[in-house]
Computed example of a mutant assay.
Amino acid sequence: MDCSFHQNQVFHAVESNNSELLLELIQAGHSVNSEGNDLIRPLHEACFRGHGECVRVLLDHGAEVNVRNIDGATPLCDAASSGHVDIVRLLLERGAYVNPPLLLTSPLHEATLRDKWETVEVLAAAGANLNSSDCHFGTPLHVAACQGSIKCSESLLRAGACVNAIKSLNTPLHEAARRQDVSLILLLLACGADVTARNNNGLRPDELVLSSTHPAKRVLIQWQNHPRDLKHYCRLVLRRQIGAKRLLFIPELPVPKSLQEYLDFRFC
Score class of each variant (00 low, 15 high):
Phe267Glu: 09
Arg240Phe: 12
Leu156Asp: 14
Asn99Asp: 08
Leu58Gln: 00
Trp223Asp: 01
Val85Cys: 12
Gly138Arg: 02
Ala13Lys: 03
Leu157Gln: 01
Lys167Asn: 14
Ser4Pro: 00
Leu92Ala: 11
Leu220Ile: 00
Pro101Glu: 07
Gln241Asn: 06
Phe265Asn: 07
Gly29Ala: 05
Asn69Arg: 05
Gln27Lys: 14
Thr213Ala: 07
Ser168Ala: 12
Ile70Met: 12
Leu238Glu: 12
Gln7Leu: 10
Asp194Pro: 15
Gly36Tyr: 10
Glu261Gly: 09
Arg235Ala: 03
Leu141Asn: 00
Trp223Ile: 09
Glu93Gly: 09
Asn164Ile: 05
Asn129Tyr: 10
Asn225Asp: 14
Asp134Leu: 05
Lys116Asp: 08
Ala125Cys: 14
Leu173Tyr: 02
Arg68Thr: 13
Arg228Lys: 04
Pro101Asp: 10
Ala96Leu: 04
Val14Thr: 08
Ala244Glu: 15
Leu186Pro: 04
Ser212Tyr: 01
Ala165Gly: 11
Pro227Asn: 13
Ala144Gln: 09
Phe5Cys: 05
Lys116Glu: 15
Asn200His: 15
Cys3His: 11
Gly36Leu: 08
Thr213His: 12
Pro251Ser: 12
Glu15Ala: 09
Leu23Val: 06
Ala128Tyr: 07
His174Lys: 08
Leu103Thr: 12
Leu156Arg: 15
Thr105Cys: 11
Cys268Ile: 07
Glu45Tyr: 00
Glu207Val: 07
Val55Asp: 02
Glu110Ser: 11
Phe137Ser: 09
